[in-house]
Design a protein around this nucleic acid. Sequence first.
DNA 1: CCTACCGATCGGTAGG
DNA 2: CCTACCGATCGGTAGG
Lengths: 197, 197
Amino acid sequence: MKRNSRADVIETASRLFAEKGFHGTSMRDLGGELGLLGSSLYSHIGSKNELLVDVVRQSAAMFQKLADDVSASVEPAPKRMFQLVRGHLNILVNDPYQAQTFLNETRFLPPNEREIAVKLFDHYQKTFHKVISDGQDAGFYRNSMDVHLAANLILSLLNGTTRWFRDNGPLDIGDVSAEIAVLLGSGLSSSKSIKGL
Amino acid sequence: MKRNSRADVIETASRLFAEKGFHGTSMRDLGGELGLLGSSLYSHIGSKNELLVDVVRQSAAMFQKLADDVSASVEPAPKRMFQLVRGHLNILVNDPYQAQTFLNETRFLPPNEREIAVKLFDHYQKTFHKVISDGQDAGFYRNSMDVHLAANLILSLLNGTTRWFRDNGPLDIGDVSAEIAVLLGSGLSSSKSIKGL
DNA sequence: CCTACCGATCGGTAGG
DNA sequence: CCTACCGATCGGTAGG
């Protein structure tokens, strides 16, 4: 019977929030998973909201770091795009519970905290906009493409993987990112031939 | 002050379930939106679970019908793929609350009902598998592509649109499906040139 | 981290 | 559709 740290509580909370949702997880549920009573959690944390805040912040920091790294890169746009795709998938796979909580439960944060997360995600999206835009300027990507729309579609595709990708499944993250690379690569290319559609 | 029908209750429930989640919506919340008390809802419905069951079933029926229509089609694979994409987007846009509840809250159904929904979605996915597989056999799509993975990626992309697509936004569903068509079209083509990645 | 609680809110019912 | 409830569960606190 080992003692639980605050980090243990947050980690387990992220799993339960991902699996059963923030509102579907009671403090007694969470305590039960850690082998203690719900009321005992309050020696580690101040409130249930605080748990969600911490999980979302941790996840947000991951995406923030990726955005910073890619923004600092001087590689050609398609390579930076692959860095984003690969890095984004890595974040989702490394801590799927944290990522799912970020993606699905951020809306349940208190308003001020939610705004911070939304702004951070906007900034993250801008990294995609920049890469796509640079790719157009350099002739890699179609100029006809709506930059915001393309970014939204790519992010949708990436975030959706949390719904079906399993780390112990038949595919590894390399398979998935390679397939996405091909899918996006050809689809984003300036020279393309659309057939049949 | 008009009376509410059972259909009104379900429709409003789908909106609240989409916005605040199943567990984040109380019967008193729902009653409040309809101008009555939470307890008064029970003259229209039997339980809160029943509301979720009904919303999910309605949405599931939409996807079921699309799958049946496309399965009955004898068009070339790329055209059927576009029917799926366009039809799927139409369902999401026509009733975004219902669709979001289907996508996000199905997991909170009672086990037996959840299994039904999962099976139905599996069947829906198989429609994508068939189209992709046919497209490979007919030489439209790369044979190297993993059919299940491609279907998952396409569905991720489509379902993710519920997070950002707004019916009154600058883009209409035609813009979005056209962009997706180009993205998928070239990316799925058997003749392609990957550059830079 | 537990014991022993608290007021608030939950889904739901009986009866009109 | 309301009045008047019900037992269960919620997030959280005081004190050890």
